[in-house]
């Protein structure tokens, strides 16, 4: 277990280094942030002063070395635009994004698994066919369009739910969350559902396929022959074995949910990290872009680790070994 964790840590560090070099060189080649930031009436002297203040006049390897040195001391640099530590800017917005992502994940599981089971148990029924049609729509319609339609229908026409923003928040262990207030939940519902649609479809399909496959296996037939109730067969024998591929995919997808949240956050004016990174890219605010991407790498690594551990818990045949 320890050697497994150590090798995972090394992998993560290697990814961080590669990622930071790529971003550094990439942004260096794209352009000079000062051209995007400075007003056109600034004199060349002011321009040079800003370039110097941001350290952009040094050679790129020098800039990178300085960045690594500071990063090792926990400082990922100050945002050019905000003049504040980039990491703090991102962490301040992270709860909103994570709340949205978890909300979407929860909806995906709560809606997707029951529908998937239903479709898997009686694949030929009309209800199952409708569920599968819905899942095709969920897969193929673009998130931003669905989001706008949701706003149009539920906010503009019907006026049931607010169209944007995060609503009232309360502190939970020092972190502002909105799902504990009525107003906050009302604000969360539409964006979370929007983000979850694709996930719901995915979960339905995975669950259906798993249930159909496992139901045909000998031990399920045997269980049935033994006279066990359908409920018990479903819970103990079918569902548990269906869960294994589901956990892997959902785990990986959770990372994607956070990344895809950008679109949903923009449409619903949700104050998360996604909006920050989009703007940062627009003005080449390198410290923010770097900090965000590095944080994403760490997040993905942690999610993968959790997935592997869960996997081992659900499937006793899996052993976590070093170098896996």
């Amino acid at each position: 277990m320890i050697s497994y964790l150590a090798s995972r840590l090394l992998q993560t560090i290697a990814t961080l280094v590669v990622m930071s070099v790529l971003v550094f060189v990439g942004l260096y080649m794209v352009g000079n942030p000062v051209d995007a930031l400075l007003s056109s009436s600034a004199t060349p002297a002011e321009r040079i002063a800003v370039i110097h203040a941001f350290g952009l006049d040094r050679p790129i390897w020098d800039q990178y070395a300085l960045f690594v040195w500071k990063a090792l001391h926990g400082n990922l640099g100050n945002s050019f635009v905000y003049g504040q530590p980039a990491l703090r800017l991102i962490l301040a917005r992270m709860p909103a994004t994570l709340e949205l992502a978890f909300g979407a994940l929860l909806l995906a599981l709560l809606i997707g698994i029951p529908l998937g089971i239903r479709a898997g148990l009686r694949p030929e029924g009309l209800v199952s066919k409708s569920i599968m049609t819905f899942s095709i729509l969920g897969f193929s319609l673009p998130t931003f369009w669905i989001g706008l339609m949701m706003v149009l229908v539920f906010s503009v026409e019907l006026g049931w739910l607010p169209s944007s923003g995060r609503g009232q928040t309360v502190e939970l262990l020092g972190v502002p969350v909105s799902f504990l207030t009525r107003d906050g939940l009302a604000h969360l519902l539409l964006p979370a559902l929007n983000l979850a649609l694709y996930k719901i479809s995915l979960v339905i399909r995975l669950t259906r396929a798993g249930v159909m496959e496992v139901s045909q296996l000998d031990y399920v037939r045997f269980a049935r022959a033994k006279g066990l109730t359908e409920g018990r067969i479903l819970r103990v024998h079918v569902l548990k074995n269906t869960l294994i591929p589901l956990i892997t995919v959902i785990g990986l997808e959770f990372g994607a949910v956070i990344a895809f949240a950008v679109v949903t956050e923009t449409i619903f004016a949700w104050p998360g990290m996604g909006k920050l990174i989009v703007d940062a890219i627009g003005v080449l605010d390198r410290p923010v872009i770097l900090a965000y991407l590095l944080l994403t790498v760490v997040m993905f690594s942690v999610i993968n680790l959790i997935v592997d551990i869960l996997y081992a818990i659900v499937d006793p045949r899996v052993r976590l070994a070093g170098g896996a």
Partner: peptide
């Protein structure tokens, strides 16, 4: 003062009375 960078979102907020 709320921020809606997305054009459609801003219009929607106006039309929905947000």
């Amino acid at each position: 003062l709320r921020v809606f960078k997305n054009d459609s979102a801003r219009t929607a907020a106006m039309l929905s009375g947000d």
